[in-house]
Computed example of a mutant assay.
Amino acid sequence: MHQPIGIFDSGFGGLTVFKSIIEQLPEYDYIYMGDNARAPYGNRSFNTIHQYTWECVQWMFEQGCPLIIVACNTASAKALRTIQQQDLKTVDPSKRILGVIRPTAEVIGDYTISKEIGVLGTKGTVQSGSYLLEIQHFFPDIKVHQQACPLWVPLIENGEYDQPGADYFVKLYLDQIMTQSPQIDTILLACTHYPLIQQKIEANLPAHVKVVAQGDIVAKSLVDYLQRHPEMKTQLSRNQTKAFFTTTDDTADFDHHASVFFSAPVKSTFISANDLVKC
């Protein structure tokens, strides 16, 4: 039976996590869903983000996924808890949905010496306060500074991130967060899109500041999860297949940009948002 691991994101960003997961768990089957037609999620309301995320999750269940990774910080912040605690009960409580915030919060304190970190994310992620709460739970002695970067995802989704005009907006938000405290020595990229501009980010920060992306963190967390949950591990099929789906009907454009994120050729299939609503 085909029972792949599902990877969901609002657009391209989750591919940075997907790539890391495959590097550590290459034997499994995977389905990637990018809701590009309705991206970005960052400025949308709680109800809208929950609706979109739950629609995509249900569609992935219909494709046979017993385990889904929500590789989107905004969806993890604003929809994951409701889906885990309420929605799953109406479908199949045996299925599992994991996010990216908790596994990141569990280890981020290991990167800082000064005990002050900066979190860069979408408006939705920052406003949710999820990282403040989760990091405080695991590292109560760490001070967290947050900065919303509302223009970064649109620049990345539209392929403008490597243009000179993007440099201004990269520096703008970095200056704002470093102004909050000169003691920040670690910057967390709390959006899976941001690794694509990581070099620009590092170039505009003091040399001693570490920049932490989530891909390897989430992948290691998934390896640990499967080791601790053999009942889920035995369900998953292992044929090393990868399938990509997007809600934009311009699959050629998706494939082009996704290939950059994934550092490998990507061939996607269109799934309309209307079909998701029917799930």
Rank of each mutant, 00 (worst) to 15 (best):
F262H: 12
S76T: 14
T90K: 15
I156E: 04
A213S: 15
D9T: 13
A190F: 02
K123P: 01
A264P: 04
A219T: 02
I21F: 01
Y41I: 10
F138L: 05
E55G: 00
I187N: 00
Q58N: 14
V260C: 09
F270C: 00
G165Y: 06
M1F: 10
P206I: 09
T53H: 04
T234G: 05
V212L: 12
T186C: 08
A166W: 03
H145G: 09
Q180D: 08
W59N: 00
S181H: 10
Q147W: 00
V211I: 13
D29F: 03
F262T: 00
A203R: 13
I177N: 13
G64M: 09
I68D: 07
A207G: 01
Q146V: 12
Y41L: 01
K233A: 11
E160F: 05
W54Q: 03
C65N: 14
N73L: 10
A148K: 02
H257V: 13
G129V: 11
R44C: 01
G34R: 00
L174Y: 10
D35K: 08
G99L: 04
G109Q: 06
A190G: 15
H256K: 11
K171Q: 15
R44K: 15
L88N: 10
A37Q: 09
A148M: 11
G34Y: 02
I21R: 04
V153I: 10
P150R: 10
Q86I: 13
D249F: 03
V212D: 05
P93A: 14
Q235G: 01
K220F: 01
V119K: 08
T251H: 06
S94H: 14
D253L: 13
P40K: 05
D9E: 15
L236C: 02
P265K: 14
L67Q: 03
D92L: 09
N43Q: 15
P150K: 01
Y32L: 01
S237W: 06
I184N: 00
E160W: 05
V266I: 15
P206F: 14
L236D: 07
V91D: 01
T122W: 00
Q214F: 08
P164A: 07
G121D: 01
C65K: 09
V260T: 13
V100Y: 13
A105L: 10
A105N: 03
F244Q: 01
Q127T: 11
T247R: 00
D167Y: 07
D162S: 12
Q146K: 03
H137L: 08
